[in-house]
Design a protein around this nucleic acid. Structure first.
Length: 268
DNA sequence: ACACTAACCTGCAAGC
DNA sequence: TGCTTGCAGGTTAGTG
């Protein structure tokens, strides 16, 4: 369930169980993810303490004593706390056993995620733009970076060098809230409208993280399939249905191979 | 430097 | 019922 709010929710859910624990074992059943799981990762990490758990973009970073493990959930990945060696589900690919006799289990049907070890900075973290919830990200930056960009605004705000963590759902929702058509050229948007858009990106992400917080308490006991954000979506997944604001039929188009729903009346 | 496509995978729903 | 097609929360490698 991985857009940024889901990654953040996952992080908060597992942190209390894994921070300051020692890795006693790591089992990789399926090493073929987006990139192959680092060879011999189990030998590298066994015995190391997990010192801190952080997030950058949609990556989860387990900071160990001698380096870090970079985890991405791809499109279909999830992490949950289980009893060590409890029944393996289909597509459970990795289990990390901890000194507190709990285990972190990685599940990912489509295998678009990753588990990579590095003793230095991970390649994947280079060239990433600012975090959307940080003060570095605002309308001024969007305006500045977009001046010569002819691409549509939706793929533009989903570009990781512009800003990280804005996936298809929240890009769609933030554009609706801002009254901006997803296919408008990025260079044809005023500074004022970009300020509104930046504000709405922050708001929609923060609200989704808050909602994730409510499912947080039963996160580790759940089956890992929470659907907590769906109720507050205005446009995503609602093509052909009436706009919540003006009743106009919502239109759907494809931009950069991603479905984009918008209201032709409210968004210009 | 930028824009766009194909590709990595499996599962599911819709259409025939 | 069974087969085929297209689509799904992401990101990068390759092409023009």
């Amino acid at each position: 369930m991985p857009e940024l709010p889901e990654v953040e929710t996952t992080l908060r859910g597992i942190a209390p169980y894994i921070e300051d624990q020692k890795i006693t074992n790591l089992t990789v059943r399926q090493p073929r993810l987006r990139w192959p799981v680092t060879e011999n990762i189990q030998d590298i990490v066994r015995g190391q303490y997990i010192q801190k758990l952080t997030r950058r973009a949609k990556y989860i970073i387990l900071g160990l004593e001698k380096g870090s493990i970079l985890i991405h959930l791809g499109m279909s990945g999830s992490l949950r706390i289980v009893e060590p060696s409890s029944d393996w589900c289909k597509h459970d690919h990795i289990e990390m056993q901890l000194s507190n006799h709990q285990a972190l289990r990685y599940h990912d049907p489509r295998r678009f995620g990753c588990w990579l070890w590095s003793s230095a900075q991970h390649q994947q973290l280079r060239n990433l733009g600012p975090e959307p919830l940080s003060s570095e990200f605002d309308g001024d930056r969007l305006y500045m970076v977009s001046r010569h960009r002819k691409m549509a605004v939706k793929p533009f705000i989903m570009t990781n060098s512009v800003v990280v963590g804005v996936g298809n759902i929240y890009a769609t929702e933030a554009l609706f809230r801002s009254g901006i058509r997803p296919d408008r050229g990025a260079c044809n948007i005023s500074k004022t409208r970009y300020s509104l858009l930046a504000k709405n990106i922050k708001q929609v992400l923060a609200a989704a993280i808050d909602q994730g917080g409510t499912t947080l308490r039963d996160f580790v006991n759940s089956d890992g399939q929470p659907g907590y954000f769906q109720q507050s979506l205005d446009v995503y997944g609602r093509g052909g249905k009436p706009c919540n604001c003006c009743n106009t039929t919502l239109k759907e188009l494809r931009l950069g191979q991603r479905s984009s729903v918008f209201c032709p009346t409210c968004q210009t």
